[in-house]
Design a protein around this nucleic acid. Structure first.
Lengths: 259, 259
DNA sequence: AACCAACGGTTCAAATAATGAACCACTTGC
DNA sequence: GCAAGTGGTTCATTATTTGAACCGTTGGTT
């Protein structure tokens, strides 16, 4: 692993529940030498990727990441576009919605929206890291990913988040095939019990799945009618989001599924 | 310069008008060896900071920057908060508004809002890089920056963007002192002719200026009354933004300026 | 069709930068 | 006043980065 990768890996230890990290923590988390971490963080700081708290000297992400994100948005505006799509989808379905992006080994939630319709709802945090195999979003992405990428994901240890999580690679492959039939994935309690989640893949300009759009609802509220509402709304919203970021679904993506 | 800094410097060549850059371009822009650029970009790609176009192999910023920005927003939500502040300020003043962040050698616009009030307005792009000395935002930040930082900025060559740009360090120092009197900066045509811009600094938790909030209007529309409206609105909005990101103005910041 | 220039990508000995054990100064809790 | 934690620093050893020259392709010109 090159020096640059090591430095960037240090950035990955920031998380929603750990927005500030000290030098010693980073050293432990990364397993690198303290002097190395210190120097790398110093370089990251010079470039504005992290900044240091005045009093306790803990590191936090710096303003430079906002700048780069603004630039990325200028070319591929998935965030700003998805915000509106999420808002509409939440209003339409009355449930919590979110978009996620597929990464090398995991899926990251990017943005979410709540609906005021119900007092009980699935709550979310942005920038959460979740697994491919246990989430409807992750499975939706996998269903339209390169087969070798799927195998790479399935070759890793698959954690059983709940008793409902699919951890058998063969079962997951079957599930992915089923998802490809409809273009829509759903999981019941496989990441968190009592949560019934539906998702559709979002495609980039190269017709590959780059992320997913999802609706998460309490299982208790998931009547067959509600499920049909969600599936229809999700299909429309997903197609809209894919289109508005300049992407296109692959030729074999089920376009017009009759009710 | 360490390897990490070199890699991160490569990211700085992305701009609103150059969202995709090829290997040879990066080599020329950075002055580094092609093999070096290739390897560094490869590492940036592995970490998801950039991705490569399928057809022409040009690099563009990757999804990882969005993830980090979402995290940064979770701890210091300047972007999401500023969006609302900008909206209100634009509605109130009828003009274009924007927030910028101060960096080592330059200022970067982060987000902006337009007003529908007038057909003619100042147009903006997010993630633009501008100079400290020629913009009201930059001067507002400098007025509340460390004196040594000010000298560092003034020691660089100061480009005359227009005939109105202040380029004499002494004149700029005088201007900064004047800004400190009122806590508000304005420039007329110093970055672009015919644009009259007002700005207030935004302070972080450590009471240092981290950025600026600005209103940019066509000079022709800037009557004394309109100017007073803008100054008052800007003062309020700036205080609100500083407060809502968890920051505080320094003790010597003029708080309640009578009209 | 032959040419040329520019592109992305690759190689490997030489040069340079990264590394890590041990260190210091400081703060916190007992 | 001790012990254990913190952030920060040093410097000989080591491993990585570097860059000139290379290859294969592509697209435009003669």
């Amino acid at each position: 692993m090159g020096t640059v990768s090591k430095a960037l890996k240090l950035l990955s230890y920031f998380a929603p529940d750990r927005t500030e990290v000290g030098l010693s923590d980073l050293t432990r988390l990364s397993g690198m030498n303290k002097a190395t971490v210190y120097r790398l963080m110093g370089e990251l700081q010079e470039s504005g990727f992290v900044e240091q708290s005045e009093n306790d000297r803990a590191y936090r992400l710096g303003p430079q990441v906002l700048h780069l994100a603004a630039l990325r948005e200028a070319s591929t505006p998935i965030l700003s576009v998805s915000r509106r799509v999420l808002r509409e989808l939440s209003d339409e379905t009355g449930e919590t919605t979110h978009v996620s992006l597929g990464h090398e080994t995991h899926v990251q939630t990017l943005s979410h929206a709540y609906s005021p319709s119900h007092a009980t709802k699935v709550t979310m945090e942005d920038a959460q890291t979740v697994t491919y195999h246990a989430t409807s979003s992750g499975l939706a992405i996998l269903a339209y990913a390169d087969p070798e990428f799927v195998e790479q994901v399935l070759a890793q240890p698959l954690k059983a988040h709940t008793s409902m999580t699919l951890v058998d690679p063969d079962e997951i492959r079957a599930k992915l095939a089923a998802i490809r039939e409809t273009g829509l994935s759903d999981t019941l309690g496989s990441f968190e019990l009592e949560v019934h989640s539906h998702a559709v893949p979002i495609f980039g300009a190269d017709r590959r799945a780059i992320g997913a759009l999802a609706v998460a609802a309490p299982a208790s509220r998931m009547s067959p009618e509600q499920q049909e509402t969600i599936r229809a709304a999700l299909r429309r919203a997903g197609a809209a989001l894919t289109h508005r970021i300049g992407g296109s679904p692959p030729a074999d993506y089920p376009q017009n599924i009759p009710a």
